[in-house]
Nucleic acid binder design. Structure first.
Lengths: 341, 341
DNA sequence: TCGTATTGCGCAATCGATTGCATTTTAGAA
DNA sequence: TTCTAAAATGCAATCGATTGCGCAATACGA
């Protein structure tokens, strides 16, 4: 019931000093005597004083909050990135505000607006699949606060970003399939307007060509890469006269769908068809056979993004040079692609 | 580069009126003439005015932000709850601030502190496994803002909560195993200090007794219920002279671990050992065989929690009566427990 | 035409913390 | 003991939006 909130003024009154002094004492200002500081701290405790960040934020123009925008937190990849951001941010007294857009463009725009109105000190985001127009992100830049994109980035926007080398990840995955003896490798991709998928497709293609295999458009299936899409794509592949002997999916769910369909059709994985997905989601190791996949080191992506934020928020008005950090992905080989020699 | 933020004062100056009028006009105050309102809105647009929520929050003592505390967002259960909360909250102009504690007590305490300092208007939380002491949550109550607990709740704290009927979920799961012919059913549980696990254990036990089966302590294995724990527990069960013919796990990961071990030992699931888990995580349907589990209707939990928040935040100082909403869980029967008759 | 409502808007304080610029106090130097 | 520099603290404005109260202008009824 006692909801009296103590302010620095209450502390000041108690000690017959002014709020200015209290404020400085609490921040360990050099011009305040040691005893005053002690006295202030003591009464602050006694009164159960809790700083009002809102007031400080208003005065300083800094909320000490980083806004994070992700399509959904319900995925190992994104939640690890968030965790990576938190690790760094918390060390610098920053808190994060996580917002999910559910891959909905309107929600994304509204979220940016909300974060801006909440006066976050910066935004770290991965945009949704629908996002074609980036004006809402431009607003962040216009506000003069750092904007860092990760995973799905956009080069038109001149902002820093942290991505993985999707090309390399796809290249490794495809090359691995080839090494396992696959000669007809299919690829599940999403719209080529999103750079990560474009890059993965490119990596797939290059790997094929570099290994003397043809690039066959009929083996590249475009979809939304969800579970059902993966199933449909797999079924489509089964109807081909010449069936593929390997599939590399640009998503994790997509390859799960494919695995299901293959098993339902009594097609041996990996012996008849070997599978590799993308993104090391929890469930990829729970299937039978477990799924080979490309690990994106999501925690590190988060770390890097937060570090860039800290740099930019401090450098502030300096000549701002957007940087792009590209992390190397790693191929995790599990049963779905490992053929016994 | 243009980071001039327009305020209501800028609008006022432009129109030769005062900020008061602008403020009222923007809020559609009845005492402001229609033309003034139009003029204000027009110039607000022209100046690209964005309300400063921080200033309003300071003045009103309301931030329009709900703090959400979850152990981790990286689980279907929690992220669905969050989504459920957002659904309701956004409809009432509230934003959410999601914080993860990673089941770490210190982090949880710090998080509550941070949310309080950020002046959230309420907190919706599910505490971590380590949490024994609830003083940090008491602080929320003392601040006079709504606190709603979900899933893992605590009865000592006199706050509203939204939970599922864990007893019933466990009872149904166990009964189902019995109906499938299981006569020796093991149970994976966590520390009995956490009510959800206590209740699930109770449901398991009652179902056994109600069906004339003995309750055997040696079949109840306590662990942290993660993947490895499930594996260890299963191995422990295999060493018994009389092996169980069914396992009901109080977690989703635990049963995955058990499934892995059983398969590695060539024990047929569900025919030799039938399995049921708890919580409808994505991966439970990806295993082979797919796992039966207890669906918690997490989205609805979130809805309910947010609704309670709205009620309480509006009722405010009224006689506050904590309410407890108990939702019915649902048993999802998949291959891991469905024996062909 | 006068008096009372009603409408429309301005004044100024407020929310709590911060900070540049005094002002006062203390310490040390001359 | 007096003067000055340094140390410690106070004053007051500020951040931007909100709101109770008050005042002026217009409307309306008698």
């Amino acid at each position: 019931m006692k909801k009296e909130k103590a302010t620095i003024h209450d502390i000041a009154r108690k000690l017959n000093i002014t709020a200015s002094t209290v404020s400085r004492a609490l921040k360990d200002h050099p011009r305040i005597s040691a005893e005053t500081k002690k006295a202030v701290q003591k009464t602050a405790q006694k009164l159960n004083y809790q700083p009002n960040h809102i007031a400080a934020a208003l005065r300083n123009g800094k909320s000490k909050i980083i806004g994070i925008i992700v399509p959904t937190a319900d995925r190992s990849f994104f939640s690890s990135v968030v965790r990576g951001i938190e690790e760094i941010a918390n060390g610098s007294q920053y808190n994060v505000m996580i917002c999910q857009t559910y891959d909905n463009y309107e929600k994304e725009v509204a979220t940016v607006e909300a974060l801006l109105n909440a006066r976050v000190d910066g935004v770290i985001a991965s945009h949704g699949k629908e996002t074609q127009n980036f004006d809402h992100f431009l607003k962040v830049k216009e506000r003069g606060i750092p904007l860092i994109l990760f995973d799905r980035s956009n080069d038109e926007l001149e902002v820093s970003s942290v991505v993985i080398d999707d090309f390399l990840g796809a290249y490794k995955a495809t090359e691995h399939l080839i090494q396992q003896g696959c000669r007809r490798i299919a690829h599940f991709t999403n719209t080529r307007k999103i750079s990560i998928f474009k890059e993965r497709l490119r990596g797939y293609r290059e790997a094929l060509l570099d290994n003397g295999l043809p690039y066959d458009e009929s083996l590249v299936i475009e979809s939304n890469l969800q579970l059902e899409d993966g199933r449909n794509s797999a079924e489509q592949l089964l109807k081909l006269r010449e069936r593929p002997d390997g599939i590399f999916s640009a998503s994790a769910l997509g390859i799960v769908g494919a695995l299901q369909v293959l098993k339902e059709n009594n097609i041996a994985v990996p012996d008849q068809v070997a599978l590799v997905g993308f993104s090391n989601e929890t469930y990829t190791s729970f299937t039978d056979p477990s799924l080979s996949t490309v690990e994106q080191h999501s925690m590190r992506i988060g770390n890097a993004a937060a570090e860039i934020f800290l740099e930019e928020v401090n450098a502030d008005q300096k000549k701002f040079i957007p940087q792009k950090i590209v992390l190397k992905p790693e191929l995790i080989i599990r049963q779905s692609s490992l053929r016994k020699k």
